[in-house]
Design a protein around this nucleic acid. Structure first.
Lengths: 228, 228
DNA sequence: ATAACGATATGATAATTGTCATGTCATGAT
DNA sequence: ATCATGACATGACAATTATCATATCGTTAT
């Protein structure tokens, strides 16, 4: 294997390389390209031709669909090694979703036709991909169902808890989303998301300094997320 | 290939057999079991151990998630050869969703461990499955986004148009869902779904005889579905 | 420095949806 | 035959959310 191909922390390594014979590993190694994106930069634009299989190495991104006017619908927030381009990639020639960096991010890109041809010759790798895709799709669908059961405040609480427990591992963090984006994710209005945050602040559940959120009363927030 | 293995109309044939050498085809053929379900019978119950890969040969089913009390959230309505157990099957040991027959249905069941082991040895088959799964997941997610953008009336209109154009291929059909199930699919209350239907009837857009729906003014219904 | 803009914030009001009560009808159980 | 039950239906009212107006603040462009 090409020694320069050292994605030490990269799940790609497990995903692909654990299942690859040397000859394929070399093909992938030599074909992979790392790309850096600053916060706010678009990584994938929907309705664009799919040429690359894109994997997130570091950073944070949003997966979303553009609307008619200036509205977007956010489908999910992805941490490193979550899917990214994994959906649609095998079913169509055009990306169905857009992806934008919420924080400075690095992706690892591989040519789709290389992936496709290697998948054909490598069952274990294919099985890994099936598992990965299955997990990603499930997570998106289940989250969406969870959110739909809640009211405004519950949705906002859910989102905050997500960031605290699964992205930043801290009760204090800087929101990677604007209020508008939070609204696009939970399917409510920007004003109403702001109102919820203000209420949480007034109730002593949160402290808010611009985009910095400190969860003071996680217990209450959790119960709001569950019921509301 | 076992000549008794004649799923003439079955997509499984294309999916598997087109990609299988004779020895694998025989394994699958001898392992497959057809099961019949009457309308209303449960095909898959969530939180149950996944042993089979289930494919819908004929009929119509709903994919849904059970709630706390007596509520369900319907995720999608599946025609023959749409996914069915395709989601979650590769990622977990327990079904994440339940599946129930909306019309008399026949499934083709294959043992998961057989599928898994064959996938490992057969790349092209794996690629077919990846494409299939990708398409199914995308359809569910995109539909869910489409529905969320609409108001009550638009959601109901959307659902009716779906049945007319993609399931029954006719402007007159018998609803396979109760009003309650329609509500569970579009994410609104049963009463409000009924109200929408009544309004459509009063406006001369539909004729309703119990579960039989006749779409009189498809053009208006479509515009309601698009805006509403 | 100033203007323009977008993000954040809040209030008033309108629109939409949910909840509860009530009633009919068809169906199946006793 | 009668009763209980659940699906369908409608109205009145409450709860929730959206829309519109307005204001502040910080940032960027000129």
């Amino acid at each position: 294997m090409d020694p320069s191909c050292t994605c030490e922390l990269c799940e790609l390594k497990e995903l692909f390389f654990g299942n690859l014979e040397r000859k394929y590993a070399d093909v992938i190694c030599s074909g992979k390209v790392e790309k850096e994106f600053s916060k706010g930069e678009t990584i994938i634009r929907e309705d664009t031709h799919i040429s690359d299989f894109v994997y997130l190495k570091s950073g944070l991104v949003k997966l979303y669909k553009r609307g008619d006017d200036r509205t977007e619908q956010i489908i999910s927030i992805a941490k490193p090694f979550d899917y990214v381009s994994l959906l649609s990639v095998f079913s169509t020639n055009l990306y169905n979703y857009s992806v934008t960096a919420l924080e400075d991010s690095v992706t690892c890109n591989l040519k789709m036709d290389v992936i496709r041809s290697i998948v054909k010759e490598n069952g274990p790798l294919a099985l890994s991909l099936l598992q990965k895709m299955s997990r990603v799709a499930d997570a998106i669908i289940l989250d969406s169902l969870r959110i739909r059961k809640k009211h405004l405040r519950g949705r906002v609480a859910f989102l905050l808890i997500r960031f605290a427990t699964e992205v930043y591992f801290s009760n204090e963090f800087e929101l990677p989303l604007s209020r508008k984006e939070m609204a696009e994710y939970v399917g409510m209005t920007t004003e109403n998301v702001i109102r919820s945050l203000s209420e949480f602040r007034k109730d002593g559940i949160l402290k808010i300094y611009g985009k910095t959120i400190q969860i003071v009363n996680m217990k209450t927030l959790k119960s709001i997320s569950e019921f509301g």
